[in-house]
Design a protein around this nucleic acid. Sequence first.
RNA 1: GCCAGGGUGGGGUAGGUGGUUAUCCUAGGGGACUGUGGAUCCCCCGACCCGGGUUCGAAUCUCGGCCCUGGCCCCA
Length: 412
Amino acid sequence: MRLQKPRGTRDFLPDEMERRREIEARMRETVRRFGYREVCTPVFEHLDLFTMKSGEGIIEEMYVFVDKGGRHLTLRPEVTASVVRMFVNEGRNLPKPLRWCYFADCFRYERPQKGRYRQFWQFGIELIGADTAFADAEVVVAADEMLKAAGVTYDLQVGHLAPVKSLIAGLSPDLQRRVMTCLDKRDFGALEESLAGERQGADLVESLTAVAGCRSPDDLFAITGAIPEKDRITEICELLESQKVPYGLNFAIVRGLDYYTGMVFEAFAPNLGAENQILGGGTYRLAHLFGGDDVASCGFAAGFDRIMVSLGEFTTAGRPGAAIVCTPEAGMRGLEVAAAFRAAGIRTETDLMGRSLGAQVTHAAKSADFAVIIGKKECESGLVTLKNLHTGEQRGLALRDAVAEVSGFGDR
RNA sequence: GCCAGGGUGGGGUAGGUGGUUAUCCUAGGGGACUGUGGAUCCCCCGACCCGGGUUCGAAUCUCGGCCCUGGCCCCA
């Protein structure tokens, strides 16, 4: 093959696109019911948008380029930064809270592996301008409902950054970051090493290890004492329990960067291998970075492709289709009949290859549920012969009755 | 950026200690066959990832690259 698609990209044939659209539709419908409305932002943005959010280090992980005007641009590696920029630019005087969702392809220059591609799709929501436990809980509930609707098997973990941050507040920023990385990986050996030289380092390791293992708010506050976020954390847990969200508490979730401020959560699919996180989210404050007010936000982003990989093979329930099968003299009549079927919303194909009647039926059986056979006899009688290609039954019907029968046909 | 295993028609494969026209299945197109042909039979189409090296001769050996699969790192 002379021309290959770029590394880490994929082509999708119609069968797969139907599966993807099916799952996408279920995810969209879930968040629609919560009031989240779709927004769309540019596929490429100024490089600064992402370096301001995530630091210079991400440049080598992005598709960056200079355009003909000398602008430093990049294909978006995620959508949250764009949505917040959009909010700062034109969302400030909309009634709060804002409930927005998006489904967008993103690009990262990374080594492809299972569930990781260079072009991939994210589905996410952002709830902007509400700073309450009810807001935090809504986003988690929406994520849970959405994954349920998609049909994946997943493990949902919810945490909060405050307990760990309160324990390590006395450390240098650099060491704080290292500690959080260790916690994220649950590498307690490395944690101990990092804190070895610190005053009361051993106590700190013990507290952090205990916090990471907490399974209830009560356990947590027994270790950390009454931190300011105590009521918020307790309330979030109560709300999630009252809404029967199947989650695990995990205060070792770190989610990388500084703009995460409070609740954080992640979902994993157990059948995915190394890249098994299918969703991540939390509360954050980003707008002030882009020149806006310091507005509280909460959201999640789901890895659509990983969800599709996790779901594996399945067939979608297609809508019925018809194939017009004609003898040569009935060609014109065939087009009329096709138009009538299409007017009723039925997918209808006609022969374009000049095939024999038999070959047309053969082809129809691969692509349709019904063959509508029209020859000399049908032209004279005004009827059509409707053949059910699943059962082989066929009979002569008035056109209107044939259309009605195909319309009423159930799942394939 | 690193590690392991791979790359033969559209898909799946056989062969490969260097030597005729590269095997089989499937898909696709056509015919037998202008009223049922989703069948059967026949025919056609179509491949050794790319480049250098060794050689009389490379799909096979060798080096480099590209790509695929999985893992490490990273993961906004």
